[in-house]
Amino acid sequence: MSEALLQARGLHLAFGGVKAADGIDLDVLRGEFLAIIGPNGAGKTTFLNMATGYLRPQAGTIAYEGESILGLAPRAIVRRGIGRSFQLPQLFTEHTVLENVALAVAAREGVWSPLRPLLRPAWREEATEVLARFGLATLAGARADALNEGARKLTDIAMAVALKPRLLLMDEPTSGVAAAEKMAIVETLARVLRETGVTAVFVEHDMDVVERFADRVAVWSQGRIAALGPPGTVLADPAVQREVIGIEGPGAAAAGLPGGIAAGHA
């Protein structure tokens, strides 16, 4: 648990006047579950976007397994073993749930076979097995655009898991999932990832989930990491409670906008 799988150093990225990343230094350790918390607009998703090649930082470096992945396309980064799930599920809406996951299996195994069907026995079996692990077996035949938000979210994560990444970046895996199912889902997810030895980074707003599943917590604030450490220590910090947890309360969403926070600290 001491070796860094992903190493970010001095990441800077500004959109106009808004600094989405203002000197991010972070080591993601092999095998850990690292939670990223922080108000909306703090740059959490921007970090995931930079780590997966979707956005290129204006300064700084990112290394995975000791090699720079800066400037690589998302496609190339995925192939190296960094998977990604999305805050808004990115599904193939005209395909069934099974086909969505089978496409991910195909993407891993090689899609370039024009004559053999996607749902060949081996891939169908693997996709079915992945769906079963996520409790989605009964929805295998449903079209992806007919699912509720929770099931779409899980399918999205199942697709990322089917790629068998060594590092999985998840953007708010539990948002939109019914509160009653949330813990069970994270429980399942954590078990699947631990079994396969996947390192996970997840953006999360639910502090109960963070406390229970994260090995470490990184607190994002205005494009910087304000605090980093075990959840027990970090979440007990009064400043973190005021800045992050307080803001998570109902009706306080507007205060989380980047302009609001920047103004408050100016």
């Binding site: 193939f92 395909h95 496409l103």
Partner: peptide, 18 residues
């Protein structure tokens, strides 16, 4: 099937390494 994926969610293909 990936061809049909271009129609609905092209970026996801890229994020699957395709």
């Amino acid at each position: 099937q990936a061809l049909a994926g271009i129609k609905t969610r092209e970026t996801r293909l890229e994020f699957m390494g395709v």
